[in-house]
């Protein structure tokens, strides 16, 4: 059983159909990168996986379970799925430690005493253990994004979703975030990421998904697809983005 099973999902915003029957499986431990032109539905697909958007038809299963429609079911699912956005979305009024421990404390994953240790250990994983008492405003974009990742890690997620998490960063800060993500990949985290980082898609990912006009246009082994795109659309996309 795949960790995530997406079956023939359709999604529209009013008359605009954004996902036109998307099917995709993500196995445990897989690193799936989703690439595609702007507007092809990448973010929408990611947001459907943790039910930030409701789907119009089809089905999404997480660990074999259909995403619940009850508030309680949704919350339990989201506690297992971390998502990081392009705009870090840290909570400005909390220290880094509070940002990271808020959810584990409120959902009963840890008590107040265990929280400090938890914060230290996840921040150490992203290389920011010395920033426990700083506020988000006092960190660089790259550091904020690493805290956002640590905030998800503190919930011990089974799956991590990333939506263009390096796109808002100055070029010299991209590397530090990618390094953290490579580290997570090496430790066996299941990850689905939308990205424009073609090197990451080629060298780190275990599966490449090319979306085009609301469909999964091509998918497969990244190195094979990069070397040998089957469709003219992917070929021209790679042509535009390859360095």
């Amino acid at each position: 059983m795949a960790l995530v099973e997406i079956k023939n999902v359709r999604k529209n915003y009013g008359p605009l159909e954004v996902l036109k029957g998307v099917s995709l499986d993500v196995e445990k431990g897989e690193i799936v990168t989703i690439i595609g032109r702007s507007g092809s539905g990448k973010s929408t697909l990611l947001r459907c996986i943790n039910a930030l958007e409701t789907i119009n038809s089809g089905e999404i299963l997480l660990e074999g379970q259909s995403v619940s429609t009850s508030m309680d079911g949704l919350r339990q699912m989201r506690q297992k799925v971390g998502i990081v956005f392009q705009a870090f979305n840290l909570f400005p009024h909390m220290t880094i430690e509070k940002n990271v421990t808020l959810a584990p404390i409120l959902t009963g994953k840890t008590d107040k005493r265990g929280a400090k240790e938890l914060a230290f250990s996840v921040l150490e994983r992203v290389g920011l253990a010395d920033k426990l008492n700083a506020y988000p405003e006092q960190l660089s974009g790259g550091q904020q994004q690493r805290v956002a990742i640590a905030r998800c890690l503190a919930m011990s997620p089974h799956l991590m979703l990333f939506d263009e998490v390096t796109s808002a960063l100055d070029p010299e800060l991209v590397g530090e975030v990618l390094k953290v993500m490579e580290g997570m990949a090496a430790q066996g985290m299941t990850m689905v990421l939308v990205t424009h980082e073609m090197n990451f898609a080629r060298n780190v990912a275990t599966k490449l998904v090319f979306m085009h006009q609301g469909r999964v246009w091509e998918q497969g082994d990244p190195k094979t697809l990069f070397a040998n795109p089957q469709t003219p659309e992917l070929k021209s996309f790679i042509g535009h983005h390859a360095r």
Partner: peptide, 14 residues
């Protein structure tokens, strides 16, 4: 709204 979304994504109640 992205702040609210971030909270919901962490599995918090409304």
């Amino acid at each position: 709204p992205s702040q609210i979304e971030a909270g919901l994504c962490l599995g918090l109640t409304r």
